[in-house]
Design a binder for these strands. Structure first.
Lengths: 249, 249
DNA sequence: TGTCCTCGTTGATTTCGATCAAGGCGATGG
DNA sequence: CCATCGCCTTGATCGAAATCAACGAGGACA
């Protein structure tokens, strides 16, 4: 899970910072922003085509099938991206947080729905305007291609998880990945926050919420993780958790 | 499954054709080539950084973890892309054929392995050289971003399949998707060729080969598909197959 | 020709996770 | 305060797919 960042230069200037100064200050290296591709003085070009928005908890801000008019860059909060089947079954394809770019998985129309898990602040870019910015700053497009490549790698990792891993392996893999993301934006030795519900976790891992709960209990029982009152998780034994993430039983 | 092509202009000139004239002639509109982004007279720039190769059946031509030096464009034949777990479990993330571009899911190192299912002819591009071609022809990079977006859409569709669909739904979804690809390169009312084994299909659909075989038998029993002696499949009732692809039981 | 090997099909049994069910805890609100 | 609701946990049972097993068809090759 750490090699996937190697190919992407870490940003010293985050796009989000440029547009909403002060936000995400502790997170400037978070994941891969759309950052760093522009010189400081060019960032205002991007800012000019961005509109800042706040999405309340539970509100959907992208609907599958809608005409794809915008890209989004998350500044704060967490959202879930998912696809539904007509009978209500749901697959969450990813959780996105500060620094994450949303909207690549779209042709004419969005191929997914996005919903805020808690209050989300984001920047909205018009697709056509962003395209013209690309023409002026090709480095931005290069960066976007890197972001897309990175998402493809993650998607294939998730296919491996969904197609071939057991319930405990899925949960262990998720916790490791989630803690990797979180530690880029370090909150010290704090417990890892899990803003999503067990049901969301199930929809992400291809399990039911009961199975997620049981798998987490199993990890607690073995003193591999600790779950706080606030639902935060602390990883006690990263090595044994890693062992669970790939090996059978 | 048909809307995913809407956002991508169909190519009138296929890159593969330009480099190896005559190949893929019947497939020029196949999937999305890297095509059409360049004017006819500019294609030789691309050709100059490409090397044609033949990969025998069963031979691996990309190994997960290897330094990512090349991109590939398939001209002929079919290959499987996959990831393995240490204990041998395998997830095939995609089958690629004529016109398909391979190598996006890589940062510094490939995140997947690629192996020829039958004899494969392909063009190999040096990554760094291709990058410099981008600088001269930004339209190529734009096209590559479109290809990546399209692959992301497919990957999320596959996550839904792996996480939430039943065995029959998975097989039905695969057959529909596979026939969509094939009909772009029309072989008339012929049966649909399935060059991969049942085991490959299982590794793609997150099932065992026995379950794939049983699901296919179930579709045969209901006269929804017909399986020829050569393992080719003919879809007899596309509507009922579509119904299976999304609905429970 | 016969043997070996890969691939596919089908049947019997097992197992992991889904489903069904009950109850706990904390937040919200009358 | 208690009632309700959302979220989580745990237990009991069920079921879909995995596993184990046997066999058949076709191709490669001595």
């Amino acid at each position: 899970m750490s090699d996937h960042r190697n190919g992407l230069r870490r940003s010293s200037i985050n796009l989000s910072d440029a547009i909403i100064p002060g936000l995400c200050a502790g997170c400037e290296a978070r994941h891969i922003g759309l950052c760093d591709a522009l010189a400081d003085e060019d960032l205002h070009f991007l800012a000019s085509v961005a509109k800042s928005h706040t999405v309340p908890k539970g509100r959907m801000f992208v609907a599958e099938g809608d005409k794809a008019r915008h890209f989004f860059n998350i500044n704060r909060g967490t959202a879930k991206l998912f696809k539904d089947l007509p009978d209500g079954r749901r697959q969450i394809t990813g959780f996105v947080g500060a620094g994450d770019f949303v909207g690549l998985a779209a042709a004419d129309h969005y191929a997914f729905t996005a919903e805020a898990i808690n209050e989300v602040r984001l920047c909205r870019f018009d697709r056509t305007e962003l395209r013209s910015v690309f023409t002026t700053f090709p480095a931005l497009e290069r960066r976007l291609l890197d972001v897309a490549s990175h998402e493809l790698i993650l998607a294939q990792e998730q296919m491996l998880l969904l197609g071939r891993k057991s319930a405990i392996e899925r949960l262990a893999s998720f916790l490791l990945g989630w803690s990797d993301r979180a530690e880029i934006c370090p909150n010290g030795a704090q417990a890892l926050a899990l803003p999503m519900t067990r049901a969301d976790l199930g929809d992400y891992l291809g399990l039911t919420f009961e199975t997620v709960s049981r798998a987490l209990s199993a990890l607690k029982r073995q003193n591999i993780v600790e779950v706080g009152k606030d639902h935060g998780v602390r990883i006690l034994d990263r090595d044994r958790l890693s062992a669970f993430a790939t090996s059978r039983s």
